[in-house]
């Protein structure tokens, strides 16, 4: 297992390195740069040249990359070109917001989605199933910004309440933080819960027709035991895979909800650094997204073995 993890991490490092090259070239292929953005319409060519030198943009791309990589390997992601703050601090605090958002969403979506899916599967084809299916359809069809907007406007017109717009981290004020992230989490969770419950329902329904379930029932096991010991365990692997996918999706796709609710998360940080061509932030931020995606996948793969000891990791 240890060897397996080490191998996977090494492979991830190579992937991250390759990704960083792609990202580096990609962000530079977008027309315009930070200097054009800083100097605006009335820029002076001499001033522009001076600033390009200051940022090292006058160097060949390969040398810019080598310089950047050298510093990153030494643990220094540099300073934001437009904000003047250390990139690590900026990405770190933005990541904290997005991780909180993703974790809370995952918990809430699981808490809503899994029971609904089980309920629908048990009552397959009957009224509870129909209601759950309707909920799923709505959740899967409605765009997240629409759900968010409806919650926002609905809360405002019904209760004259809207979330605070200036973000406060959890460790500074729990109540303030929760009142800020409640609506965005709910918006994301409703959508993910629908996907979840649809998935769980589908898995259980198809598992119910399997031989092992029939055997378990035939040998006189209680419904409870059949369900929790045999059935849930068997749908565990696809379920965990699904959770991993959802987590990555939230991490990468939170930008819309972050913009709607003015949350200083990673998605919004990436978006604003694309707009200002703040390459150091952009490169570090994208790299972090890639690394997290790989780590989540690794954890998902490792959990297969815990769920099903027959799985061999190699």
């Amino acid at each position: 297992m240890g060897v397996y993890i080490a191998k996977r991490l090494a492979a991830s490092a190579v992937t991250a390195l390759l990704t960083s090259i792609v990202v580096f070239l990609l962000v530079r292929s977008v027309p315009g740069d930070v200097v054009g953005q800083m100097l605006g319409q009335t820029s002076d060519p001499v001033a522009a040249k001076a600033l390009r030198e200051f940022f090292g943009l006058d160097q060949p791309v390969w040398r810019q990359y080598a310089n950047w990589l050298g510093r990153v390997l030494a643990g220094d992601f540099g300073t934001s070109w437009t904000r003047g703050q250390p990139v690590m601090g900026m990405v770190g605090s933005a990541l904290g917001v997005t991780i909180q958002l993703a974790a809370a969403t995952l918990v809430l979506a699981t808490a809503i989605g899994v029971p609904l899916g089980i309920l629908a599967a048990i009552y397959e084809g009957r009224a509870p199933d129909r209601i759950v299916q309707a909920f799923n359809l709505l959740g899967l069809a409605a765009p997240v910004f629409w759900i968010g907007l409806m919650l926002l406007v609905g809360m405002s017109s019904s209760f004259d309440w809207s979330p605070p717009l200036m973000y406060v981290p959890l460790h500074e004020s729990v109540s303030e933080n929760l009142s800020i992230i409640a609506l965005p989490v709910l918006s994301l969770a409703l959508l993910q819960a629908a996907a979840y419950s649809q998935f769980v329902r589908q898995s259980i329904v198809s598992a119910l027709g399997q031989d092992y379930v029939r055997t378990a029932v035939a040998k006189g096991l209680s419904t409870r035991t059949v369900f929790f010991r045999h059935l849930l365990r068997n749908i565990g692997i696809p379920l965990v895979t699904f959770m991993g996918l959802i987590l990555i999706q939230i991490l990468g796709g939170a930008v819309i909800i972050e913009s709607l609710f003015a949350l200083p998360g990673l998605g919004r940080l990436l978006l604003s650094s694309i707009e200002t061509r703040d390459y150091p932030v952009l490169q570090a931020g994208l790299l972090v997204v890639v690394v997290i995606a790989m780590l989540v996948n690794l954890v998902v793969d490792l959990s297969y073995r815990i769920i099903d000891p027959r799985v061999r990791l190699s």
Binding site: L152, V153, S162, L165, M166, F261, A262, R268
Partner: peptide, 21 residues
């Protein structure tokens, strides 16, 4: 003075109504 960056007009308008802004 807190200059609060609200990238979305809908949230800004709701914020104005509810005295967040």
């Amino acid at each position: 003075i807190n200059f609060i960056f609200v990238p979305n007009a809908a949230s800004l308008l709701v914020g104005l109504r509810n005295k967040r802004i």
